[in-house]
Simulated scan of single mutants.
Amino acid sequence: MPVLASFACGLIFGAGLLISGMTDPQKVLGFLDLFGAWDATLAFVMAGAVAVAATGFAIARRRTAPAFSARFLWPDRTDIDAPLVAGAVLFGIGWGLVGICPGPALVNIAGLSLPIVVFVLAMLAGMIGQNLFGRNLWRRRAAAPRAIETSPLPSHADG
């Protein structure tokens, strides 16, 4: 059942991308062109997506268990670190240069357009590279000596 739920969610997401025009690089570039022929229609798409997501998260937070999983998988990190900022900057640069991001690229791959195929291959190479780099980074962090906290532990006699 989880596979069918994932398929349905992906199908709805892809249909939404097609209907909204997010798969058209020229429409996206028009939205990003704030000082030229700005096309504000995608702002409404984003506002609608945020409203739907916020509603979904509000409903999910009230549930005691997810519908298609053994447990909830909520994010546990809230910090903003250098890799997050660098990734966001690279994503923004790529989106601004070609007007396409990973979701719409995967929808557009069905058309077998050479620029989209090259984009998806480059995206996959970047994902593999990040995975290898990230794995090495975590190994180095794990091997680095750690500071030992010297705060006093509470005594059992205090209690």
Rank of each mutant, 00 (worst) to 15 (best):
A15C: 04
R63A: 12
M127E: 01
V120G: 02
M1H: 07
S151M: 11
W138C: 04
R146K: 15
R61G: 06
W38R: 11
D79M: 05
G96R: 14
R77M: 05
G36I: 01
G48P: 12
K27R: 12
F57H: 12
I109P: 05
T23N: 03
G94R: 08
G134T: 04
T64D: 07
L153N: 12
I100H: 05
A70Q: 10
G36S: 05
I109C: 06
A67D: 12
A37S: 10
A110H: 06
R62A: 10
P75L: 10
R71T: 13
S69Y: 09
N108Y: 03
D39F: 03
I116H: 11
P152S: 15
A86G: 01
V45W: 15
A70L: 12
F57Q: 09
F72A: 08
L121G: 08
I80T: 11
A53D: 14
C9P: 02
F68S: 06
F91G: 01
A37D: 06
F119R: 08
A105E: 01
F7D: 02
A70H: 04
G126N: 00
L84Y: 11
A70K: 06
W95I: 07
P66H: 10
F35D: 02
P154F: 15
A125C: 09
G14A: 15
G111W: 09
L84K: 09
D79K: 07
P152L: 15
V52E: 09
A142P: 01
L34P: 00
D39V: 04
L121Q: 03
D33I: 01
P152K: 15
G16N: 09
L73T: 11
S151T: 08
A51M: 15
A51E: 14
L114N: 10
S151K: 15
R62D: 03
G14L: 06
L11F: 14
V85K: 10
I12Y: 09
V45C: 13
V3H: 06
F31R: 01
P66L: 05
M127A: 10
W95T: 13
V117S: 08
S69W: 07
L32V: 10
D76Q: 14
F7A: 13
A157P: 00
L42H: 12
A54N: 08
I148K: 14
S6K: 01
F91E: 00
Q130A: 08
P104K: 11
L90G: 13
L17P: 00
N131R: 03
L124N: 00
G99A: 13
G30W: 02
L132W: 05
G92C: 13
P102D: 03
I100N: 03
G99E: 02
I116M: 11
G56L: 11
F72N: 05
L97Q: 13
R140H: 02
R140Q: 11
A142R: 04
M22R: 00
S151C: 08
L84I: 08
Q130E: 00
S20D: 01
A86F: 07
T41W: 08
A51V: 15
V120I: 02
P154I: 14
F68G: 03
V28P: 00
P2H: 04
A65T: 04
P83Y: 10
L84G: 04
T23P: 00
A143N: 09
M123W: 09
L84V: 09
L114A: 14
T78C: 12
F31C: 04
A15D: 01
A65Y: 07
P102N: 06
G94W: 04
I116L: 00
V52N: 14
A144K: 06
D79L: 09
